[in-house]
């Protein structure tokens, strides 16, 4: 547990000191949303707004979480000796979840300012988005651990990640679509539970499989 906290601290410290990866992602987000703002200047339907938000989050996530293992390939051997794989995985999962949630809040803010927020049911919309983030971040963390071992990590991340992430995106975006169009929690409770269980399955698999991909 102590190890997990230290590793988490290290990850956040890298972000605070380097600054450019995080700011770069925010700039990336800003350009994407601005591009959308120009392309949809005539106004856009709720369904389109919703799918654009999820696509933006997905693309930011590929860029953001790719760095969790790929960033530090030269130091992996060192981490291998000082802590257990489970501690490393736990810290990376927590870190990428926090990171993606932050980016999600920022992209939601940019979307609301530039493209408007079409719904009204805030709370469950956020619960759904958080569950989506949890699934996306944990699946991509695992995938980035795998693709860090290959020759072309950046491309691998996208190719390996998208098919795995698809169930989460389908469930999450259909849930938030229902909410934005005026549905209530009773309309999506089943889907929300399914989404949560898919998240749990992915995290459990990551815990089972990560030690094997780590030792090499």
């Amino acid at each position: 547990m102590n190890n997990v906290i230290h590793l988490l601290k290290k990850d956040f410290q890298i972000d605070i000191r380097l600054k450019y990866p995080f700011i770069g992602l925010i700039l990336y987000l800003f350009s994407v949303v601005f591009l959308l703002y120009y392309s949809f200047s005539l106004g856009l339907k709720t369904e389109v707004w919703n799918s654009l938000l999820w696509i933006t989050v997905l693309f930011v996530a590929t860029n953001a979480i790719a760095k969790s293992f790929i960033q530090e390939t030269n130091r992996n051997l060192y981490y291998y000796f000082i802590s257990s794989p489970l501690a490393i995985l736990t810290s990376k999962l927590i870190y990428s979840f926090c990171f993606l949630c932050t980016l999600c809040v920022i992209s939601f803010g940019l979307f609301s300012i530039l493209l408007g927020y079409p719904g009204n049911n805030q709370f469950w919309f956020w619960v759904n988005l958080t569950l989506g983030c949890l699934g996306i971040s944990s699946a991509f963390t695992m995938i980035s651990a795998l693709s860090a071992k290959t020759n072309s990590a950046g491309v691998m991340m996208v190719i390996l990640g998208f098919p795995v992430i698809l169930p989460i995106i389908i469930l999450g975006s259909s849930n938030s679509n229902i909410l934005l169009l005026g549905g209530s929690i009773t309309d999506i409770s089943d889907n929300l539970i399914t989404l949560f269980s898919v998240d749990l399955v992915i995290i459990a698999l990551a815990y089972i499989l990560f030690p094997y991909s780590w030792k090499s």
């Binding site: 795998l146 098919p163 169930p167």
Partner: peptide, 24 residues
Amino acid sequence: RISAVYNIFAFVALIPLLFILPRM
């Protein structure tokens, strides 16, 4: 080793895709 890990990971991810989502 890496492809075995991905194979297991992807197969489990395929199950909701093929058997749960289409039913909804």
